[in-house]
Amino acid sequence: MHSRATPYLLVAPLILFVGVFTYVPILTSLDLSFREWDFLSPDRPWVGLENYRLVMSSQEFWNSVRVTALFAAISVPLRLCLALGIASYLVREALPQRLLRGALFLPSVTSTVAIAVVFSWLFATDYGMINAALAALGLPRLHWLQDPGLALWVIIIVNTWKQLGYDIVIYIAGLQAIPQDLYDAAAVDGGRRGHVFRRVTVPLVMPTTYFLLMISVIEAFQVFTVVDVMTRGGPAGATDMLVNLLYRVGFTLFDIGTGSAIAVLLFVLLTALALIKSRVLGRRVHYEA
C-alpha cells in the first residue's frame, strides 16, 4: 500500500521548520544567555551567570516585570468578565446578535499597528477626540500618553478593545455547548436570572474560561506592538513591557547576551505560569461539555 517512509516524508517539511525556527532557537537563546556578545565581534566569551546577575540587579528589568504583571493582572480579568457578560447576551443565533458579534470581532483581525495609530489620535492631547469630548463637558484635557499615571490605562483600553471580540466568540461557542435542559431545570426551580448565571452558566463554561485565561495571560506577557507604536515604553518607563525591553536590549543596544537572558527568564516565567495554572485550575474545571 505504502512504504514505511511515507509518513516521515509527509511530516518532514513541518518538523524541519519547527525544529530550525522554534526548538533550536530555544537552545541557542540559552547558550547565548551565558555569553557576552555585541553581534559584531568574532568571539563570544563565556561569562557564566553574569548576564543573569546583571538583569536581576537592573531597575529597568524589575520595572518591566512590574508593569507587565500589572498589565496582565488588570487586563485579563477585565477582558474575561466583559466577554462572558456580553457573550451571554449574544448567544442566540438571530440577526441582531450576529451583527453585533461581527462588529465586536472585527478589531481582533485588524492590524494592531493601525489600531495603535488610530488610538494615538483619539488620545492625542490637543486634537484628540477624547479630549475634545472632555472639553465639551467642561472637564480639563488630560495628557493621556504623556502622563505616567494614565499611559498604562490607555494601553489596557486599546488592548481590551482589540481582543474582546475574540474572547466573546470563544465564550459564545462555550455557552452554546451547555445543554439547554439545565437552564430549563433551573427555570422550573424558579431560579432568578443572576442566580442561574452564577450557579449554572459560570461553572459550566469553566473549561472555556480556563482556555481563555491561559492564552490571554501568555498573550499579555508578550504584548509589544501597541506599546512600541503608542509610547515606546514611556513615559518614564510606565508602559515598558518585558518584550519591549527585550527588543531594546537585543536590537538597539545589540547586547545579545543580556537580551537572551531576558528572553530565557520570560520563557521560564511563562512556562511556570502555565504549569501552575494547570495544577491549580485543573481541579476546578468541572463538567466537561
Binding site: L14, I15, L32, I256
Partner: peptide, 24 residues
Amino acid sequence: LMFAAVVATLMIPSHITLIPNYLT
C-alpha cells in the same frame, strides 16, 4: 512525539526565537 512537539509550539512564546532567528 512529533505531533506533541508541533502542538507545544502553540505554548512557546515566540520572543525567545527572536534573537536566534535573527542570527540564523
